[in-house]
């Protein structure tokens, strides 16, 4: 994926520097502003692929900013990056029209993965019936999965998980992303349930085939790959 143009609204310069550094290293362009009003103006005027928004800004809360942005018809995906990271805070943010919510402190890889997934979802083909990646097929309507034309027997939950990985094929998907999009949870359980569920799916995707397709990205998450 080529680099994205990202608007970052954040009043803490040190935090802003860190975000900019991480995103630039991933190949993106970052435009930074320290106030909500200025952020709102630039967001409305500019042509950004994505907006990263702090929640507690001195002049305008991130929640208000999103509301006003949506009111004037700006549909650019917004990732809220906030020091308020409790379950209720996340729900509040998402209810206000934010597309994704990440709590500080975060893993840089998590931020990059969320940014990629968010942009892909906003830019992706909306109504394709079949997702294709390498020798994998995901038939959305029939809810069936194939590899090399061979049918894979997945449970309904495994299919949802497979579909989410396919939607983000080639990109890293983190545990938090899977919890939110597959199991609808915005906190992570203490038991390592995600790794076990992904392990199950991996066996079904790889057993009887000579090449692995679902790799674990150490410390971050999982990724579908072709080689």
């Amino acid at each position: 994926m080529s680099g994205l143009t990202i608007l970052h609204v954040e009043d803490d310069p040190e935090a802003a520097r860190a975000v900019a550094e991480q995103l630039r290293r991933a190949g993106d362009e970052v435009e930074w502003t320290g106030t909500g009003e200025d952020g709102l103006r630039r967001a409305a005027a500019g042509d950004h692929d994505l907006i990263i928004l702090d929640r507690m800004l001195p002049d305008l809360s991130g929640i208000e900013l999103v509301g006003r942005l949506r009111d004037v018809g700006v549909a650019v995906p917004v990732l809220m990056l906030s020091a308020l990271g409790r379950s209720g805070d996340r729900t509040e943010g998402l209810d206000a029209g934010v597309d994704d919510y990440l709590a500080k402190p975060y893993e840089p890889a998590e931020l990059i993965a969320r940014v990629r997934a968010l942009h892909r979802r906003a830019a992706g083909a909306p109504h394709s019936a079949v997702l294709l990646f390498g020798d994998l097929e995901c038939h959305l309507k029939a809810r069936t999965a194939y590899r090399q034309g061979r049918h894979l027997a997945l449970s309904p939950k495994e299919f949802t998980l497979f579909r989410y990985l396919m939607e983000n094929a080639g990109e890293v998907v983190t545990r938090d992303m899977l919890l939110r999009h597959v199991w609808n949870l915005n906190f992570d359980p203490q038991t390592n349930v995600i790794d076990v569920n992904v392990g199950r799916l991996r066996r079904k995707l790889e057993e009887g085939f000579d090449r692995p397709v679902l790799e674990t990205v150490w410390g971050t998450g999982f990724r579908l790959v072709t080689r």
Partner: peptide, 12 residues
């Protein structure tokens, strides 16, 4: 939450 998270985030 905010005041504690911010320095922790810098530390991180």
């Amino acid at each position: 939450a905010h005041e504690l998270r911010t320095p922790l985030m810098h530390l991180d």
